[in-house]
Design a protein around this nucleic acid. Structure first.
Lengths: 232, 232
DNA sequence: CGCTTTCTGGAACTTTTGTTGGATTGAGTA
DNA sequence: TACTCAATCCAACAAAAGTTCCAGAAAGCG
């Protein structure tokens, strides 16, 4: 099956010939659910493209608590940093579901960047974008409370799927959410209860829906619970 | 006065002719102590090189608490992310002391990168490096306690100046340290007292010295106070 | 279906961090 | 020297986050 290269920012504007060389430089890998893709600190594993499945990028502290930096779906890329500078992998990667990836080694990536001008400048753009994301997350961790980060997560996940009023990151367990926010399950449960009580979220059966988008936005931005606005 | 271009990673390996063109593309700016260089969210201010003085890169939350992302000395660079993607500045920059900078606008930087191959690939490396730093700081914020972050800061600052056993970031006020760690002055004071009591740091007059490097490293890595090792 | 496993709800408690406010020190300056 | 301003110290308190524990609910499976 062909890959939709244009859906991956790194490969935009590269001619078919170049794409062929890139594909030839890559190796495909299949992972079972739960399989480790690579570990933090190990020698550079190369540049990865998720072709199928779900991949978790995470870090773990000494006590075993883990922080999910991202959950990646197909056509997302990861480990660009190590792939580019050849240093050790900056985080762990694991296949959440069974997954398939395309890997380009550090050496080959450098070669490709040397011959494909567009790849090089796309990489600059992509790295800049990544940087912005990290700065944002860093500020979330320093300035925002957990309810606020949770609100942000709901807003983000809901718009990611569709702009419907009601969608929500409901397939995520509290454990997963905790790992994303960098806290523990209990705390997430408490915060979730808080948002439900405040009327920002609503539960129907298993699923949680956004009840008050404005309120969530307020909470996400200001870190304070919105005054109970009962105008609806 | 000439600039030591080789001391700036971005410009390594560029021939004198290219350096001349780069310098020609830059504009020099002088700032008084306390002057704002640019603000977060504003249109891209370009690529900055600190030529003289001390520059603070920071973010601020709604309540006015500020988070110092870095304090930059001469020949450091900043705002590369916005300069490269042309987006809004991701943080604020202010001259702490009177300062001098060289600025290259987004447009000109793109032109230079188009003609100077080495600049382009150096930028990829530099952005990757920046990324690693942010990942590291993100993990510090998620996993480490304030005493632990403080220990890390002391270790980092002390080695930054010299590898002497006793140096310490003592010219920083508690207020400054608090902004770097993303907390408040009081908390820093308390943590500092804790490290002094634990015998990890020592105070002589105004200055604070590292008394037990091993202990600090332990604290920075494990987040737990080292058992009182009285073997000295 | 019954059993096991995973996920959730929620209370009670501890620890850490943030906040407030007053006392003290010390460097610089009139 | 006396005054002033900034930095520090420290205690007491408030709030947020982390921990422990147990009881139910739902999902998956033999």
């Amino acid at each position: 099956m062909g890959i939709d290269w244009d859906a991956i920012p790194y490969f935009r504007g590269i001619d078919p010939c170049g794409l062929k060389r890139i594909q030839a430089a890559g190796r495909q890998h299949v992972y079972q659910a739960g399989a480790t893709i690579f570990n933090e600190g190990e020698a550079c594993a190369g540049f990865y493209i998720v072709l199928d499945g779900l991949v978790r990028i995470y870090r773990m502290n000494a006590e075993g608590r883990l922080h999910t930096l991202s959950l990646l779906r197909p056509l997302s890329t990861f480990n660009e940093v190590a792939a580019v500078d050849g240093g050790p992998n900056p985080f762990n990667a694991v296949a959440v579901t069974s997954a398939e990836t395309l890997v380009i080694s550090h050496d080959r990536l450098l070669n490709l960047m040397a011959s494909e001008r567009a790849l090089l400048s796309n990489t600059v753009q992509a790295l800049a974008h990544l940087n912005r994301e990290y700065i944002e997350r860093l500020e979330d961790m320093t300035f925002r409370s957990i309810p606020s980060r949770l609100a942000k997560l709901f807003l983000h996940e809901s718009t990611a799927y569709a702009d419907q009023i009601a969608e929500a990151p409901t397939q995520l367990t509290q454990e997963e959410i905790a790992a994303i926010l960098g806290t523990t399950r209990e705390v997430v449960g408490r915060a979730l209860r808080g948002l439900l009580n405040a009327g920002l979220l609503k539960k129907r059966g298993r699923h949680i829906y956004i009840a008050d988008r404005r309120g969530l936005e307020w909470l996400a931005e200001t870190n304070t619970m919105p005054e109970r606005v009962l105008n609806r």
